[in-house]
Design a binder for these strands. Structure first.
Length: 722
RNA sequence: GUCGGGAUGCUGAAAUGGUAUACAGUUCAGUCUCAAAAACUGAUGGGCCGAAACGCCCGUGCGGGUUCGAGUCCCGCUCCCGACACCA
């Protein structure tokens, strides 16, 4: 028998869903309430959608469809994190402007997303590199500046001498440039920072009220790195320590070193002992943490000991003494550092600041936003920001304060700024007068379910920070933007390695769609295992779910019209509804799909009203396999979409099996099984049956015993051996 | 080193403290076919006893413990993955 024609039904239903605007976000929120479901917006790369994207997007798609069927008003939007280095590098190589390449990639991505049946409201589509979007990214920068939370200061940055450009930390791998393998050096440059350190404690506290994976929370806690300790003065040198109880063992002071290790040539007083101790420069002391100086206690710290041994410094043996606390002052120290957002790159949001020789840095007046990215720019790297070379960018720029001629900032912002607030703009994506309407954001936020990669110490902390800032200036109504976050595990290539051109192990999701259909692709990726675990791709697994869908549809075609009395079918589909409901709620889609397969396997032996059974099955299948479910729904005689139906109710009374297998254990080992009517499976009955069994008798043999009875499960005879 | 997560058949994996290996894949055998593919049926942790059936033993990384009963809880390890890392 022929397989169902996935290409035909996908084309047919895609068009109808599009024409009827089926996935439009409702204007008014239903009495049941709202749900905001979001997958991290992707960078639209030239390579098109990756199977890893599909995993995230299929998961939010299933969940949002389920919530919609449960009567919630659901917002499930999508957009493009389109600024960034890959497009710029491509431009350097080919001369094609990044906006052209980006636009092309977006078209490809969007097409591919539609082909895998993702239920997005495209009327809310956003694009980070669109001036209508980055205008408001700039606006946020100015609000931060006005509150003293954006400032410019000298800072060391990563510099690739061969590419002649600044690199982000993520682009430095083992101290080498990710692209050309040159050793990266540090340069001191004037940079813009966001003062995220002001929010350190609140970012830490907020973790207690959100439902995130333990690992992501732990990473953020470590990153913030709160430590309670003491500041201690050794004359004019102040140190930070968490072990003030070892103060009397401090035999030297080590300060951060900007040239070479060695004795500074001066002594300071240990306040606890009154002794003079030497001050040394040491490699292991960081300028950026604490006070940039530590007290050296060789007897209690390995690094201090190593240093003391190396330079033959005194090692004082002692026991910790809590009374030392009186020599210091309590101090909370964080590891978190301010967020460096300047980039000497072209393809990003221009920093909306003007430098005046008299008035200093001034924000561009808000009515002059956006500061548009100039198009007359040679992207080739020369060591300065490419925008410097624009002939138009600085034309007629005046200081907003004094009106004299001034210069614009030529750096752009880190793309993580763009993605720190996009989830808010989705609530009111086309607003021309404001960043968004407060009411609309209040209505839809927080995000109820957020799924994506584990950017614990980048995107996920930056977005919390920006949201918290917007909360402080009363634009946003909740301090935490993402109530529940799920991270997806990586999908590895068939050879167990990260998918990469280098290994030639990349699976193109669209090839899978062509061959097996969008439903099979979705189902397979969800069936592979738990969402957050790393998975290895296996194409024969796709064939497995494909076979399942074909078997299902063939059976459907020959039975969907059969009416009949309520038979065993009704019970199995009721059980299915119960299981799949629970599995979607728990985000364990793999077991939900297994439940559908199991149910289908059972259906071949069952009897009853097939039409009713298929109706239930189709509704349960709909979030997972939207195309096939829609086709089945139509065959069942409906004229409206399966995706606007209510999620089926199940009758708990129907779910109880009338036959129960009771197990008889002897000392915890299974020795006998009985099938019983559920009404009869009481303790007395099962005990009587067990005692009648020759096998059980053999084990009991007149020995004394007691029993443990677990209703509907088992009876355990504990025999007194000896 | 610190923090987090894991370890179950040949593989992906399932299992509110209660019948371990559901659901798939793989492989093998069979049906159909001139043949192959597809589809369908069956088998697929190790061992023992057997002609077969029935049955028995061992099995969830290792060693202990709690419990009538442990993949699951507790203590101590080993290994793997991820993040951070001279953070005082």
């Amino acid at each position: 028998m022929a397989n169902f024609d996935h290409k035909e039904i996908e084309a047919k239903w895609s068009k109808i869903w599009d024409d009827t605007n089926l996935y439009k976000t409702p204007e008014k929120i239903a009495s049941k309430g709202k749900k905001y479901v979001l997958g991290m917006w992707p960078y639209p790369s030239g390579a098109g959608l990756h199977v890893g994207h599909v995993e995230v997007f299929a998961a939010t798609d299933i969940y949002s469809r389920y919530l919609r069927m449960n009567g919630y008003s659901v917002i499930h939007p999508m957009g493009w994190d389109s600024f960034g280095l890959p497009a710029e590098n491509y431009a350097i190589k080919t001369g094609i402007h990044p906006s052209i390449q980006t636009q092309k990639s977006i078209v490809v991505f969007k097409n591919q997303m539609e082909r895998i049946g993702l239920a997005y409201d495209w009327e809310r589509e956003l694009n980070a590199s669109d001036p209508e979007y980055y205008k408001w990214t700039q606006w946020i920068f100015i609000q931060l500046f006005k509150k003293g939370l954006a400032y410019k200061a000298k800072a060391p940055v990563n510099w690739c001498p061969s590419c002649e450009t600044v690199l982000a930390n993520e682009q430095v791998v083992d101290e080498k440039c990710e692209r050309c393998d040159s050793v990266v050096t540090q340069r001191l440059m004037e940079q813009w920072f966001f003062k995220i350190t002001d929010y350190a404690q609140r970012l830490l506290d907020g973790l207690n009220i959100i439902d995130w994976p333990a690992s992501t929370k732990a990473m953020q806690r470590n990153w913030i790195g709160r430590k309670e300790g003491h500041k201690i003065k050794f004359d004019d040198i102040e140190v930070f320590t968490t072990r003030i109880d070892t103060l009397h063992g401090a035999s030297f002071i080590a300060i951060a070193n900007d040239s070479q290790e060695g004795f500074v040539g001066k002594y300071v007083t240990n306040p606890a002992t009154g002794k003079k101790i030497p001050v040394w420069r040491a490699d292991y002391v960081l300028d950026t943490y604490g006070t940039g100086a530590v007290m050296g206690v060789p007897a209690h710290d390995e690094r201090d000991l190593a240093f003391a041994k190396k330079y033959n410094l005194e090692i004082i043996q002692m026991q910790p003494d809590p009374t030392m606390e009186k020599y210091g002052q309590k101090k909370v120290q964080y590891r978190l550092r301010d967020w460096l957002i300047s980039r000497q790159r072209y393809w990003g949001t221009p920093i909306p600041m003007v430098n005046c020789e008299i008035c200093g840095w001034q924000p561009v007046p808000e009515d002059q936003l956006p500061v548009k990215l100039p198009t007359d720019v040679d992207f080739r790297p020369t060591g300065e920001s490419p925008i410097t070379r624009s002939k138009t960018f600085q034309k007629g720029v005046i200081c907003p304060k004094c009106g004299k001629s001034a210069k614009r900032e030529v750096d752009t912002m880190d793309t993580f700024v763009d993605s720190s607030w996009y989830f808010l703009r989705f609530c009111d994506p086309t607003n021309l007068n404001a960043i968004f309407s407060k009411d609309k954001v209040k209505a839809w936020t927080p995000v109820d379910l957020y799924i994506g990669g584990d950017h614990a110490t980048t995107h996920l902390i930056f977005a919390r920070f920006i949201n918290m800032f917007l909360y402080d200036i009363k634009l946003v109504s909740v301090p935490e933007p993402f109530v529940k976050f799920y991270k997806n595990g990586h999908v590895l290539g068939e050879d167990n390695r990260k998918m990469s051109k280098r290994w030639g192990n990349i699976v193109n999701p669209l090839e899978i769609v062509d061959k097996f259909g969008a439903d099979s692709l979705r189902l397979y990726e969800m069936f592979m295992g738990p969402l957050d675990m790393a998975k290895v791709w296996n194409t024969s697994g796709v064939e497995g779910v494909y076979r399942f869908l074909n078997r299902l549809y063939r059976k459907f075609e020959t039975t969907f019209n059969l009416d009949g009395d309520i038979g065993s079918l009704n019970k199995i589909t009721n059980q299915l509804i119960g299981r799949v409901t629970r599995d979607i709620e728990n985000m364990t889609f793999n077991t939900g799909i297994a439940a559908m397969m199991e149910t289908f396997n059972k259906m071949s032996d069952a009897t009853g009203n097939w039409r009713l059974a298929w109706r239930q099955f189709t509704l349960v299948l709909a979030p997972f396999a939207p195309y096939l479910a829609e086709e089945m729904w139509q065959k069942l005689g409906h004229t409206d979409s399966v995706h606007s139906q209510r999620w089926p109710e199940y009758d708990p009374a129907m779910v109880i099996d009338e036959k129960i297998t009771m197990v008889v254990q002897i000392n915890g080992k299974v020795r006998e099984k009985f099938e019983l009517d559920s009404g009869e499976a009481g303790e007395d009955k099962i005990k009587q049956l067990a005692l009648e069994s020759a096998k059980v008798q053999n084990y009991l043999k007149g020995a004394s015993y007691r029993t443990i009875f677990v209703p509907c499960k088992l009876i355990n005879f504990i025999v007194n051996t000896k």
